[in-house]
Amino acid sequence: DTINITLPDGKTLTLTVTPEFTVKELAEEIARRLGLSPEDIKDTHNGKTLDPSLTLAEYGITPGSTITLEIK
């Protein structure tokens, strides 16, 4: 299953994830792909900052969802 990550420059990154991924694991994968530190990444969905300890499923993030990435 894939989700879309909207980057600060407007580009989109597509990642393969499972509903059990935590937001922290997602940030780590994004950081790895972009050459950043996971601590520099802030993920938001529907205007809410995502708690790193919760899973994508707990936020109702499903395949095809879009998450907005902010760099701290």
Rank of each mutant, 00 (worst) to 15 (best):
D1V: 15
D1Q: 11
D1C: 15
D1E: 08
D1W: 15
T2F: 13
T2I: 10
T2L: 08
I3G: 01
I3P: 02
I3N: 02
I3C: 02
I3Y: 03
I3V: 07
I3R: 01
I3S: 02
N4G: 05
N4F: 14
N4E: 06
N4T: 11
I5T: 01
I5H: 02
I5A: 02
T6S: 13
T6I: 15
T6Q: 14
T6H: 14
T6C: 14
L7R: 02
L7M: 11
P8S: 11
P8T: 10
D9V: 02
D9Y: 07
D9A: 05
D9H: 09
D9W: 14
G10H: 04
G10I: 01
G10L: 03
G10P: 01
K11H: 12
K11E: 08
K11S: 12
K11F: 13
T12I: 10
T12P: 02
T12A: 06
T12R: 09
T12S: 09
L13D: 01
L13N: 00
L13C: 06
L13V: 07
L13W: 11
L13K: 01
L13E: 02
L13Q: 02
L13A: 03
T14I: 11
T14E: 06
T14Q: 09
T14A: 07
L15Q: 01
L15P: 00
T16K: 13
T16C: 09
T16V: 12
V17K: 00
V17C: 05
V17R: 01
T18Q: 05
T18V: 06
T18P: 06
T18K: 07
P19K: 09
P19Y: 04
E20I: 08
E20Q: 12
F21R: 04
F21L: 12
F21G: 04
F21Y: 13
T22C: 01
T22Q: 02
T22A: 01
T22N: 02
T22M: 02
V23C: 08
V23A: 02
V23K: 00
V23L: 12
K24Y: 10
K24M: 09
K24S: 06
K24I: 04
K24R: 14
K24V: 04
K24G: 15
K24W: 14
E25I: 04
E25Y: 04
E25R: 08
E25C: 07
L26H: 00
L26G: 00
L26Y: 03
A27C: 14
A27M: 15
A27R: 14
A27L: 15
E28R: 07
E28L: 10
E28V: 09
E28T: 08
E28M: 12
E28K: 07
E28D: 10
E29S: 06
E29A: 12
E29C: 08
E29T: 09
E29I: 10
E29R: 04
E29L: 12
E29G: 03
I30T: 02
I30K: 00
I30P: 00
I30G: 00
I30H: 00
I30L: 11
A31C: 11
A31Y: 11
A31S: 08
A31M: 07
A31V: 05
A31W: 10
A31K: 04
A31G: 07
A31N: 03
R32D: 03
R32H: 07
R32P: 00
R32W: 09
R32Q: 07
R33N: 05
R33G: 03
R33S: 06
L34W: 05
G35T: 03
G35I: 02
G35S: 06
G35M: 06
G35C: 12
L36N: 04
L36C: 12
L36Q: 05
L36H: 06
L36K: 07
S37L: 10
S37D: 10
P38V: 15
P38N: 06
P38D: 04
E39D: 11
E39N: 12
E39H: 15
E39Y: 09
E39L: 15
E39Q: 14
E39P: 14
E39M: 15
D40W: 14
D40G: 10
D40Y: 15
D40N: 10
D40P: 13
D40R: 11
D40K: 10
D40I: 11
I41A: 03
I41S: 02
K42D: 08
K42N: 09
K42S: 13
K42T: 13
K42M: 15
K42E: 10
D43I: 15
D43V: 15
D43K: 15
D43T: 15
T44V: 13
T44D: 07
T44Q: 11
T44Y: 12
T44R: 11
H45E: 08
H45A: 12
H45W: 15
H45Q: 09
H45I: 15
N46S: 13
N46I: 11
N46L: 12
N46T: 14
G47Y: 05
G47E: 05
G47R: 04
G47T: 04
G47L: 14
G47A: 04
G47I: 10
G47F: 15
K48D: 09
K48I: 14
K48W: 09
K48C: 13
T49L: 12
T49F: 13
T49I: 12
T49P: 12
T49E: 11
T49A: 10
T49D: 09
T49W: 14
L50K: 03
L50A: 04
L50N: 03
D51A: 04
D51M: 04
D51H: 05
D51R: 04
D51Q: 04
D51I: 05
D51Y: 04
D51C: 08
D51N: 09
P52T: 13
P52S: 15
P52R: 08
P52E: 10
S53K: 11
S53N: 13
S53A: 10
S53F: 08
S53W: 06
L54K: 15
L54Q: 07
L54E: 03
L54I: 08
L54A: 13
L54R: 14
L54N: 05
T55E: 01
T55I: 02
T55H: 02
L56Y: 01
L56F: 02
L56A: 01
L56H: 00
L56G: 00
L56Q: 00
A57M: 11
A57I: 10
A57H: 08
E58C: 07
E58Y: 11
E58L: 03
E58P: 00
E58Q: 08
Y59S: 12
Y59D: 01
G60I: 02
G60M: 03
G60A: 03
G60V: 01
G60P: 01
G60S: 02
I61A: 02
I61F: 07
I61E: 01
I61H: 02
I61R: 00
I61N: 01
I61Y: 07
I61M: 04
T62C: 12
T62K: 07
T62P: 06
T62S: 08
T62D: 05
P63T: 08
P63I: 05
P63L: 05
P63K: 03
P63M: 08
G64S: 03
G64L: 02
G64N: 05
S65T: 12
S65N: 05
T66A: 04
T66W: 09
T66I: 08
T66R: 03
I67K: 00
I67M: 05
I67R: 00
I67C: 09
I67P: 00
I67W: 06
T68E: 11
T68M: 14
T68W: 13
T68D: 07
L69C: 11
L69S: 02
L69Q: 00
L69N: 00
L69I: 15
L69Y: 02
E70D: 10
E70V: 13
E70Q: 10
E70Y: 07
I71R: 05
I71K: 05
I71T: 06
I71C: 14
I71P: 06
I71F: 13
K72V: 13
K72T: 13
K72F: 14
K72H: 13
K72G: 12
K72L: 13
K72S: 12
